Computed example of a mutant assay.
Amino acid sequence: VLAWAAAALSYNTTQASALTGVVAIGTAVGAVVASMRMRLDMATKVIPLGIAMGVLLILMVFIKSIWIAIPFLILLGGLGGYLVVPMNALLQHRGHNLMGAGRSIAVQNFNEQAAILGLGAFYSLSLK
């Protein structure tokens, strides 16, 4: 969001950070809706939402107006929140069955943090 807002909307870091908050609002709403509507046995049915998010991210290139960007980012955040709740529940359920709840969550958190570090390093290198 930060790099896109700078390129597409000519926003500085402070203004772009506010758009990150807009995504967070959508994520929170999506997560709450998912917690009320999704059951564990239907968790894999949200996988197409990940594909839809990828397509929508590509469409962000064409957004040049803040009035279009705000609802678009809320939608993206909502899809992300709706996707992550059942996926995390499924991961923790299967992990609990395979190795125990504590170890499963530890492995999940390690992988998430490793991915963040790896992709952050890749992004930094690609800017050079």
Rank of each mutant, 00 (worst) to 15 (best):
A7R: 03
I74N: 04
I58P: 02
T13C: 11
P48G: 12
V55G: 08
G80I: 06
G118Y: 04
P86F: 07
F122A: 15
V33H: 07
Q108L: 13
L57P: 10
K128F: 05
M38Q: 09
L59A: 14
Q92L: 12
I47Q: 03
M36P: 01
A18F: 14
G26Q: 12
L73F: 07
I74R: 07
L127I: 15
L90T: 11
M42Q: 13
G100R: 02
S35L: 14
L73G: 08
L125V: 15
V29W: 06
Q92W: 03
M42F: 07
T14P: 00
G120Y: 05
L49Y: 01
N12M: 12
L119G: 05
M38T: 12
Y11N: 08
A24H: 09
G118W: 09
L127A: 15
A101N: 08
E112V: 15
I74Q: 04
G77M: 08
S126D: 07
L119S: 08
M87Y: 05
L91F: 04
G21R: 06
H96S: 15
G77Y: 01
A3Q: 03
M42S: 15
L57T: 14
M99N: 14
G80S: 14
L76D: 06
G95K: 09
G26N: 10
L79C: 09
A43C: 12
T14S: 00
L125Q: 04
R39P: 01
V23D: 06
A89M: 10
T13H: 13
A34S: 12
N109P: 03
L59K: 10
M36K: 12
A7E: 02
I66V: 14
M38E: 11
Q108C: 07
A24R: 06
A52M: 01
A28Q: 07
K45P: 08
N111L: 10
V32W: 03
V85I: 15
W4D: 02
L79S: 09
L117F: 13
L83T: 12
K64M: 08
N109F: 11
L79K: 08
I116T: 14
A3W: 00
L19A: 02
L19S: 00
N88W: 08
